[in-house]
Design a protein around this nucleic acid. Sequence first.
DNA 1: GCTTACCTGTCG
DNA 2: CGACAGGTAAGC
Length: 282
Amino acid sequence: MPELPEVETIVRGLNRGLPGRRVLSLDLRFPGIVRGSVEGFRSALAGARVDKIDRHGKSILLRPSDEKGSRPTVRFHLGMTGQLLLVRADAPVASHTHLVLRFDEERELRFRDMRRFGWVEVLEAARPLRLGPDAWTTDIDGLFQALRGRRGMLKHALLNQAIVAGLGNIYVDEALHRCGLHPRRELSGLPAARLRALCGAIRAVLGESIAVGGTSFRNYVDTEGSRGGFKGRLRIYGRAGLPCACGGLIRRMVVAGRGTHVCPRCQRPPRSAKFVLRHQKD
DNA sequence: GCTTACCTGTCG
DNA sequence: CGACAGGTAAGC
């Protein structure tokens, strides 16, 4: 579900309420969301104080501590339909609520996930997250370097969290459309200037979405249960059959196994020998 | 590369 | 009823 702007909005909501709060109790209603040891997860949070919540890509990183110092980081990943809600402890518990954290305040943290693609885990300090640079970095040149020289279709590379962390199906389609690049185009063949433009478009579209609380296409809500405002600003995602700003008709196709939206007029299809061969039949 | 699997819900 | 859904991992 949530991509970088939605996760960023959630992290901001968590940081508004949780730092300084102590975990009073933990109700793990569906232990299947825990990766690794369930006991390790319980003890990582039991009695801990929340210092702050960070984000890298789509990963939410809760930093706990106690009297003795900092404790291992707890990572939340929201998968496709995950939600983190701050709600009054006396409010009824909604369906698909898998984890409840109670704090020394009226509101508790609830992790809901209808499809259960999300997870939580305790990070071992030694093992690094295998993620590329955060896609919303101000270091545009770092983004450029992470992508430069890689091989593969643009869409596939941008969805690969180990190359760049935080983009998903919506914002990949939006960023490619903004700079007139076809999702099937080969990354390694891109002129440097066009790759730089792509990095700029990624930064821009993520920032614009964060500014209005992300995109609620179906399930996404922030920690207060509010929907994001970016859906009406999407230029291509979910708009198959509608006209692009250029007047072309937006098409839907499958690229890298994902539903993909393309304007055939402003996103030129690739012209590589391989691509031409494969599509000569039609 | 593509397909499948993990899940539940919604839409046509 | 099948197709599809904001993600990731694993299998040819």
